[in-house]
Amino acid sequence: MDRQPVDWDLAVATARRLVRPGPQLTRAEADEVVTQLRTLAVDAERHVEDYTHLRPAAGAVTPIAVVDRPEWARSNVAGLRMVTTPLLDRLTDASRGSVSTAVGRRVTGVQLGSALAYLAGKVLGQYEVFLPPEEYGSTPTVAFTKNGEGPAAGDGQGPVGRLSLVAPNIAHAERQLGVVPRDFRLWVCLHEQTHRSQFTAVPWLRAHLESEIGAFIEATDLDPDVLADRLRSAVAALRGAVRDRGPEAPSVVEALQTPAQRAVLDRLQALMTLLEGHADQVMDAVGPKVVPTVADIRGKFDNRRSGGSPLDRFVRRLLGLDMKLRQYRQGGAFVRAVVAEVGVDGFNLVWQSPATLPTQAEIADPGAWMARVLGSRPPLTA
């Protein structure tokens, strides 16, 4: 019997059962979306590399998967299982198996599947960093090199992450926003290809992220009573969010942090803010050259991000998605400020080593990062 406190198969089944259907498309329309997304993903790779000057390591291949909502949920369960297994194994050992009761495993599986069903209708694309090796062949994917002819024979490195595009969500968003489909699809691809460039051109980045996740696991308090107390505190903190008392109510993730975890998560949040902000800045910097209607898209998309019903806003806060929106804004502002002052190559010094990554304080103060890493701080302007 699986000792882990999550029924992973039930999580997949729950997500597939609860996920809402995508927009109504004819077979020809669906085929057109999928075909164009694959083509534009390859085009976006070239545009991103030309702007960022980030070149993938030799032999690095990124499969491209154009998927539907249920498949996105399934692959994310596989990725979550891979990343969380060390922590869940420790929790199970610490509780001498009590966490892994049949009922508890099923409840957790249903909860995870329900959350992924919600997210499966929202996510446009994703660069999947952590996947089991078998996942690279489990879905219809297309792996391309720069010339679009496929991976060269004899490449020793193999897949480095996977770029997934959720076709029904992209089609739904472009209809809802009333934007030019081809332009919107390329704009989305620019964002995800920036993440691909980050992880394929910066050789230490994935290992650093894995190390930080490992540090988070080591900092986890495994006392079941302490965890239960913290969970009760998290529920109490979220009551204000249920009543929509303001944007500062914490997510479950934030409310459950220990002091030691908070230190690790501060570093992780700074890193993720940098990665998301960089992708946001690149899609807008490249956009005017290759996406004629980028200004219209950006304006409408930002309104969509910040809108939604009260229930939608509550769920976003509960799952910590408001944090991701802050990452786009804060990270984008940091990257734009640095690029404006020292150019793309000056900004790229951020990728030299983990020591040159910005802290959370430096994300809010780009000049402080430039003073520390570049040795100079630009004068303040009115």
Rank of each mutant, 00 (worst) to 15 (best):
Q111M: 14
S100Y: 00
L112K: 02
A364C: 08
I363K: 00
P63L: 09
P5S: 04
H208S: 14
V19E: 01
S95L: 10
G104P: 03
F347T: 02
T220E: 12
A249S: 10
L37F: 07
S251N: 13
R336E: 15
P203T: 12
F334L: 10
A15M: 04
D365W: 03
M370K: 13
N147T: 12
T381K: 04
V264W: 01
T145K: 03
P56Q: 06
R245G: 14
L325D: 09
Q269D: 14
G343S: 03
A11S: 05
G22K: 08
R38P: 04
M272G: 09
I363E: 01
P168I: 04
V129M: 05
G320Q: 04
R162H: 11
Y127N: 05
P159E: 12
Q4L: 14
R298K: 10
H191T: 06
T35Y: 10
S306P: 01
M82C: 13
D223I: 08
V291W: 02
P140Y: 03
A94Y: 07
A117Q: 02
A333G: 05
P310Q: 14
P56A: 06
P168F: 07
P259K: 06
P132R: 06
T14L: 12
D244C: 10
V202L: 09
A260V: 00
R304L: 14
G156A: 10
G113D: 09
R304D: 13
V344R: 15
D183Q: 02
A30C: 12
P181R: 09
D296T: 05
E341L: 03
P132M: 06
V315C: 09
S95P: 05
R105I: 03
G79A: 04
G137N: 08
K146M: 08
D93N: 12
D345M: 03
S211Q: 12
M283K: 14
G121R: 04
D7T: 03
R182P: 04
R16M: 10
E134G: 11
R313A: 15
L25G: 07
H191Q: 12
S164C: 05
A167D: 09
V294Q: 03
A355E: 15
R298T: 11
W369Q: 00
R20D: 13
E45W: 05
T35D: 14
P132N: 15
T220V: 06
P224T: 06
M1W: 11
A279R: 00
S211A: 14
G59A: 04
S306Y: 05
A270E: 02
H172V: 01
V264N: 08
A73Y: 06
A333D: 15
F130A: 15
R245M: 10
R316E: 07
R74P: 00
A173M: 14
K289Y: 12
P159F: 13
V107H: 03
C189N: 03
F184L: 15
G121M: 03
Q193W: 01
R96F: 15
D68S: 05
K146N: 07
L205R: 02
N169W: 05
T108W: 01
P133L: 13
S114K: 08
R336D: 15
Q269W: 13
P86K: 07
T293W: 03
V61G: 01
G125I: 00
R317S: 14
P366K: 04
G375E: 04
D9Q: 12
Q352T: 14
V103S: 13
I213W: 13
L349A: 11
H195G: 01
T356K: 02
Y51A: 09
D31V: 06
A219F: 01
G137R: 08
P21W: 06
G343C: 08
V110S: 09
E174S: 08
